[in-house]
Design a protein around this nucleic acid. Sequence first.
DNA 1: TTTGTGCATTCCTTGACCGGCATATAACCA
DNA 2: TGGTTATATGCCGGTCAAGGAATGCACAAA
Lengths: 125, 125
Amino acid sequence: MSDAALWTALADPHRRAIVTLLLERPRPVGEIADACGLSQPSASKHLKVLREAGLVRVSQEAQRRVHALDPAPIAALDAWLEPYRRLWNRSLDALGRRLDETPADTRPPQRRTGPPCPPTSPAPT
Amino acid sequence: MSDAALWTALADPHRRAIVTLLLERPRPVGEIADACGLSQPSASKHLKVLREAGLVRVSQEAQRRVHALDPAPIAALDAWLEPYRRLWNRSLDALGRRLDETPADTRPPQRRTGPPCPPTSPAPT
DNA sequence: TTTGTGCATTCCTTGACCGGCATATAACCA
DNA sequence: TGGTTATATGCCGGTCAAGGAATGCACAAA
């Protein structure tokens, strides 16, 4: 479950779709294939990649193999993202300060649309 | 700068290395190639992919082309990650609660190490 | 103007991956 | 036992991306 395997697994749009699908609830392979418009073998292969990246876990139910999301590896991505998020928040803060020092009617009309993570320091709203 | 371009750009380990390198400071192509052990054309090509994903910006300085990191697109990744982060935090909280209900000397020694980003809002589930 | 430097682009080869198809495997059912 | 369902796997052809070598291009220095 290397970092590389994780990135590789999520690089494919079909696999991201599968992961998003499993966010809702665990599902058997056939259902995943249908929902994503994949053939059964294709879905099975993608699920294998996701399994090897640690992103999904399987549990056998009779003949079915129900795949469930395991969000734990996402933490590794999140950790990798951390310094960039900090940088991004810093530049947002800087923008905010610049805007605060600018007369209102000369400002660009855009405003912060809300990054998914709260800034580390109070940003003007 | 589609989402797909962003994932594709970051899926390559060399490109992630470049991005990490640029976290420190902007650099010209040759320096990036050296630092990452890439040939100059190879570095140039990777930088093109990163540029097209919006992750780096170029500024010309004499004959040099200095590449700087632009963390903005990272926000898109962060947004994609958000629901998984929530899920992960929920399971950590559940673990924490279970641990709190368990006599101390039967617990595993681990404790929540702190996900890099606090949950932004009470999960609207 | 010539030469040198820094970088981008093109061509080519190779390797990886994806999808489809056929088939193997395993569990359930009659 | 034989058949059906659900899934995995192997093979094949096509596509795409990466790396290397050679080259083109822009700018600067002499």
